[in-house]
Design a protein around this nucleic acid. Structure first.
Length: 190
DNA sequence: CGACCGATTGACT
DNA sequence: GTCAATCGGTCGG
């Protein structure tokens, strides 16, 4: 089932972050459908010194101030894109950084997109810029509305059972390092 | 216009 | 686990 406004409304960023685990991000391309199960996220909001929107709205972060269900895609380290799901009301800056996915549909295309040659597939989509590269999400997805059924990307609930969520401080930040706002899941033993 | 730096990655121990 | 390469964006002068 495609996630709609009822999934996002009246949900704070920390709750949304955890609710996004085990959901599926799906992208439609002319060549086929590519998707992954969201497996690691981080929450950021406007009152949080570690967040891009802490200082208020700028040209870069303006998408974070859109209403819940939009996407905020930013460019960093001179070469990487990272993808967030915006939360909260319009005018309040907050969102959930997608940090990892489990490949779901069309993994071979992800390997192509990443130009991936390692044998160990564990490293294919286990980082925020890795998953945007695998799904081919770039700056052109910044500000897009995932609730708009005309856009070629959306979130799905596949009714996976959420049996355990891990929580720990976020990665790569220098402020508010005490907040355990990173959440992730592990694949079930097969 | 130029210095600084990052919500990282990939290579390596 | 550790570490440095990397380069466009951002912001101050």
């Amino acid at each position: 089932m495609r996630l709609d406004n009822t999934f996002f409304e009246n949900k704070d960023t920390l709750t949304l972050a955890q609710d996004l685990l085990w959901k599926v991000i799906t992208k439609i391309t002319p060549e086929g459908v590519i998707s992954g199960i969201i497996s690691e996220v981080e929450a950021y909001n406007q009152d949080d010194p570690a967040s891009h929107c802490y200082g208020g709205k700028t040209q870069r972060n303006q998408s974070m101030f859109l209403s819940a269900g939009h996407m905020y895609v930013y460019f960093t380290y001179g070469m990487h894109f990272c993808c967030n799901i915006v939360s909260g009301e319009a005018g309040y800056g907050s969102g959930v950084l997608l940090r990892a996915i489990f490949p779901y549909e069309w993994r071979e295309r992800m390997i192509q997109n990443r130009n991936y040659t390692q044998k160990n597939l564990k490293n294919l989509t286990n980082g925020p810029a890795k998953l945007t590269q695998a799904l081919w999400i770039g700056k052109n997805f910044d500000g897009i509305n995932l609730l708009d059924t005309n856009v070629p990307i959306y979130l799905e609930d596949m009714w996976y059972e959420v049996w355990k969520i891990y929580s720990w401080p976020r990665i790569g930040i220098s402020k508010a390092i005490e907040k355990p706002w990173r959440f992730w899941i592990e694949e079930k033993n097969t």
